[in-house]
């Protein structure tokens, strides 16, 4: 039970930290505020060396997002391959080895 109390306290502290951080963000629904756009447009080329600013954001500034996307794709393919795997050796009780390769 004590561990649970500590974990709850940590969770509450994390939540408070995130909320405090959110107070400093650009106000919600404020598209005219161009600070971030101009920051990227002015610096993307020299910082990332890519002419395509969209790509520089997707693969550099927000690389973690793309890493997540790649993992989502990988997991989705894994699921499809597992769900639709060949069943012609169904009579064998032992799980076939190719399940683990997929």
């Amino acid at each position: 039970m004590k561990l649970r109390t500590v974990l709850s306290a940590v969770a509450v502290l994390l939540l408070a930290a995130f909320l405090a951080e959110m107070a400093g963000l650009v106000p919600f629904g404020d598209p005219p505020s161009p600070a971030m756009d101009e920051w990227f447009l002015a610096r993307a080329q020299e910082e990332t060396g890519a002419n395509n600013v969209v790509t520089s954001i997707v693969f550099d500034y927000r690389g973690f997002d793309t890493l997540g996307e790649a993992c989502v794709l990988f997991t989705a393919v894994l699921g499809v391959a597992l769900a639709l795997r060949k069943r012609d050796r169904q009579s064998e009780i032992a799980p076939p080895a190719d399940e683990e390769e997929a």
Binding site: G49, A50, F59
Partner: peptide, 19 residues
């Protein structure tokens, strides 16, 4: 130009093709 961005594009292209 663009260093790792081009390489990562290549890697993601390979992954999507395979997937």
């Amino acid at each position: 130009t663009s260093g790792t961005i081009a390489w990562m594009n290549l890697a993601v292209g390979i992954e999507v093709l395979g997937g």
